[in-house]
Amino acid sequence: MKPWEQRTGKAAVHEVSVALGIIDELMRIARRNNARSVLSVRLKIGQLSGIEIGSLRFAFDAVKLEHPMLSSAELLIREIPLRYRCAECGRCFDAGGRIAVSCKACGSRDLKVVSGEEQHIENVELEI
């Protein structure tokens, strides 16, 4: 195989990619604010986001060690429950973290996701 026919990427399960993205963002913010260190980062992650929180914590704690400024950074995660609204009867219900295919009240399959798709960095606490 010739080098111009192939491009090789960095190894990662997707939570590692997410963790690397958070770390890039933290380093950018820390430098811009002339911070001594990053104390914590607060995330909002929905149950339907496709991000496994345990895997993300594991990945974050592993990759943060490459940056002394982040070595004691704490990952604070607010998990957002998966909630649906039924387009038929208007009722909202908590799906208990599982995909719902029909309304618990009227059985309609026309459901809209109200919350649970979030995947955001909310804020960062810096030591200046």
Binding site: G21, I121, E122
Partner: peptide, 11 residues
């Protein structure tokens, strides 16, 4: 310490 609001999507 200072808290910076970000509100950016993770990806």
């Amino acid at each position: 310490t200072r808290t910076i609001e970000i509100n950016r999507r993770l990806l």
